[in-house]
Amino acid sequence: MLAALVSRLGQMVLVMFGISVVAFLIFFATPGADPSARIAGRNASQETLAQVRHDFGLDRPLPVQYALMMERLFISRDLTSFVNRGQRVVPTVLEAIPITLSLVLGAAVLWVLGGLIVGVVAGATRGTWLDRTLMILSLIGVSIPVFWLGEVANLVTQSRWHDTWLFSWVPPLGYIAFTEDPWGWFKALVIPWFTLATLYIGLYGRVLRASIIETMQEDFIRTARAKGIGERRVLLHHGLRTSLVAFVTMFGLDFGALVGGGALLTEVVFGLQGVGKLTYGALQTLDLPMILATVIYASFFVVMANFIVDVAFVFIDPRVRDAH
């Protein structure tokens, strides 16, 4: 078990190294992507360019540049933005993390609960009007673009009905830190949570329903029914419990991707300065140190989420436990 853990951690480090190298090469070594030209601004003279190159270490061999950048990113942590001179990259990312985490964690709670309820109810009532209604609703949820839903939510809660009793509690767009004002934090995020969770509730509900329906055809369900334990227990203790594998896999991957910056659209719509928005801004201005920092940060979460999924499997499915 310990050996498996160590080798998994080794794999994680390797994957993150690979991702950082690829990201570095894309931005620093692609032909025509001379970062010094971008830093120096348009119409800069050759001397200025040479000066910039030297200042930023861009005249050194690529491996050295990579090593230098990693050193400044991880060890001295003083890597600065190319665009906003003097802005340190690492603290900026660290500031954005709680915002993204707050958004994604809250939404995750909603979509796991929602997905479980939709999937179990629809799976148990397969073929009835309730099942059909739930499936149509979840299909709508899956199909609505998140930015549109967000804008509509903003329109309703921030302007149209903001002055009614219904939505007068909604604070203006933006993030309120949990440590400053927990209740304000909750109020500021509750609408983004629902917006982000809608898609995933639909998706998870449909996947779980299919998985439960498949499981309920298994022989061991018939054994469970023959034991005389009641259909609810058959469904939850045997059917749902065995169906969770697909659910957990999806959750790990989606959660990792969202924390890594995938919640960009929601962040933009609700004015949350999270990691997604940070990456988005950096990409627009081609702010290379910032891009590198956010990409490595994102890869860390995706790889980490994969790892956690694998560990979770060990608890969910005893067959996996023995395969190690």
């Binding site: 298994e218 022989d219 061991f220 018939r222 054994t223 469970a224 029914r225 023959a226 034991k227 005389g228 334990i229 009641g230 259909e231 203790h237 045997h238 419990r241 065995t242 969910i316 499915d317 005893p318 067959r319």
Partner: peptide, 28 residues
């Protein structure tokens, strides 16, 4: 009714199925 049936199933009439590989819930 299911409830009355459940009182008999497993208690007075029990069943063994063909394939022991799939007859038990794998996660318990």
């Amino acid at each position: 009714k299911r409830r009355a049936l459940d009182a008999i199933r497993g208690r007075q009439i029990a069943m063994i199925f063909q394939d022991p590989m799939t007859a038990l819930t794998p996660v318990h």
